[in-house]
């Protein structure tokens, strides 16, 4: 990038250097490989649920056990999936993101925290 020489040929910020480093690229892609697909999953699952409730009310009203119907159970499953994704994410981030992020942060700032 400094090769273009247009802006500040001799100055490349520490952030640009970190951004270009393999360690950071690794961290970024690990995070994105988790959060983007997961976001698609829960948004689609929620949208399917809303569409079912809107356009398949008869199916949703089918009794499963006692007075509990399909709609109520799918609704409760939305709660379960939300709790589950939150738990999985926090486990993932604590184990896979925080250590790498912390070491890059210390590289940038020094261990002054």
């Amino acid at each position: 990038m400094s090769a273009t020489g247009k802006r500040r040929p001799t100055a490349r910020t520490i952030y640009e250097q970190v951004q270009a480093s393999p360690g950071f690229a690794n961290l970024r892609s690990r995070l994105r490989r988790f959060i983007f697909p997961m976001s698609v999953v829960f948004l689609v699952w929620y949208l399917v649920y809303v569409l079912l409730a809107s356009f398949a009310p008869a199916f949703m009203s089918t009794k499963v056990t006692g007075n509990l119907n399909v709609g109520l159970l799918i609704g409760l499953l939305q709660f379960v999936s939300t709790f589950l994704i939150a738990t999985v994410y926090i486990t993932f981030a604590n184990a896979k993101i925080d250590p790498a992020a912390e070491s890059i942060r210390i590289e940038i700032e020094g261990s002054d925290r």
């Binding site: 910020t13 952030y15 951004q19 950071f24 970024r28 992020a101 942060r105 940038i108």
Partner: peptide, 10 residues
């Protein structure tokens, strides 16, 4: 700067 700070907290 924004991306590095966002991800690392630097």
């Amino acid at each position: 700067e924004m991306e590095v700070r966002a991800l690392t907290g630097a």
